[in-house]
Amino acid sequence: MPKKGNRKRLKFRAGDVCSESVTVADYANADPAVVKSGRVKKAVVNAVEKEVKLLCGLEASQGAVQEVLSSAARIRGDSLESSDDLSQEEDDENEARAACKKKNKRRKESSESSDGGEYPVDIWLVLSSYIRPEDVGRFALICRNAWTVTCTAAFWTRLYRRHYNMDAELPFRLQPDSIGRMRCLRACVIRSLFHLYEPFCLRVSKIPALPESTPTTLLNSKCLLFWIKKVPGTRPEAMWEFNFKFMKQGYTKNGSAKSLCIPRQYEDVHTNSDSDCYLLQVTTLNFIFTPVVMGMTLTLFTINVSTDMRHHRVRLVLQDAPLQRGRKRGDQGGTQVVLDPVHSVKLMDWWHPQYPSSPCT
């Protein structure tokens, strides 16, 4: 739209107006912004009236002039109504925006003025007695005091006693006598819940033995421990288990507790040497000689069909250094471990009931 100061005014003179210069477009398509009042100027009316009198005579011109003026006024009125509607809509939008800004400003002021109440840790400790195991993470995110409660030994001890069942078959390290110690208390309670708590037991049963994301999950993982175990069976020859304990890339032992800034008095409760670790368990039909790979980084993991077309073939490539971004996989070089034929492959997290945890946990 043209600025207010730059609006042009229509200037008419009675001597300049004739039948050729005055057209219907001067009335129907006139810009309301140019003629703000929306009425026909007096100079135009006089010029048209004079022209009509000269052509048709005084008596005949009265009706014609009134008709022209009435039609022009009607057209101007319609245009003004439409312009008024548009201006009203714009005013409504402006009022809505202003109300929204005021509302947001009031909200901001109220949020800044009211900081809320802070409840003592004892109240959060009482409320934690009614929290389900799957809601511990949500409860810890409420506030800092709620998170502090989840760090205490009392919280994990009560959680264990609430779901303990004498009929459940628990390993010795997860029995009530072993739970009484402070060190690794959190890890032991979490492992025991996968034996005692039914929703967690169902979750374990639904997890596939080897998820589809296993190659990506184990990529650039460091092999902390490797051992071979003989599994007696009904067959004349026994099966063998090859166990590879991997740690996620970028983690160190007890690194999780330090990164979360656990209070110093509760560091023993959160200690877990198996945190962020996986166990890759490969069961073969016979013994296979494998090189020592402890301390090396896994750069390639593949599972193919065995040569007898009845079993699987597992191939691992480990190197001294992790695989850098942008480089190709380390197919060549490094230490290769080929297991063929393979009976089964399992990948277990540290909290899995079949995970062989360390003696301290």
Rank of each mutant, 00 (worst) to 15 (best):
M1R: 08
P2Y: 05
P2E: 12
K4H: 02
N6K: 03
K8E: 11
R9M: 05
F12C: 02
D16C: 05
V35S: 11
K36D: 10
R39P: 01
V44K: 02
V44L: 14
V48T: 01
E51H: 01
G57L: 09
A60T: 01
Q66L: 05
V68P: 00
L69G: 00
S79N: 10
L80H: 09
L80R: 15
D84S: 06
L86K: 12
D91F: 14
E95F: 04
A96Q: 09
A99E: 09
R107I: 08
E112M: 08
P120L: 08
D122W: 05
D122A: 08
L125R: 12
S129I: 00
Y130T: 03
I131V: 15
W147N: 14
F155H: 11
Y160L: 02
R161E: 13
A168I: 07
R181T: 14
M182F: 11
R183S: 13
V189P: 06
P211V: 12
K230S: 10
G233W: 06
N254K: 08
S256R: 13
C261S: 12
P263W: 05
N272M: 09
D274F: 01
Q281V: 07
T290C: 12
T307G: 01
V317F: 08
A321F: 12
R329C: 04
D331M: 04
T335C: 10
Q336R: 14
Q336S: 14
V337I: 12
H343S: 15
V345I: 15
K346E: 14
P353N: 04
S358M: 09
P359A: 07
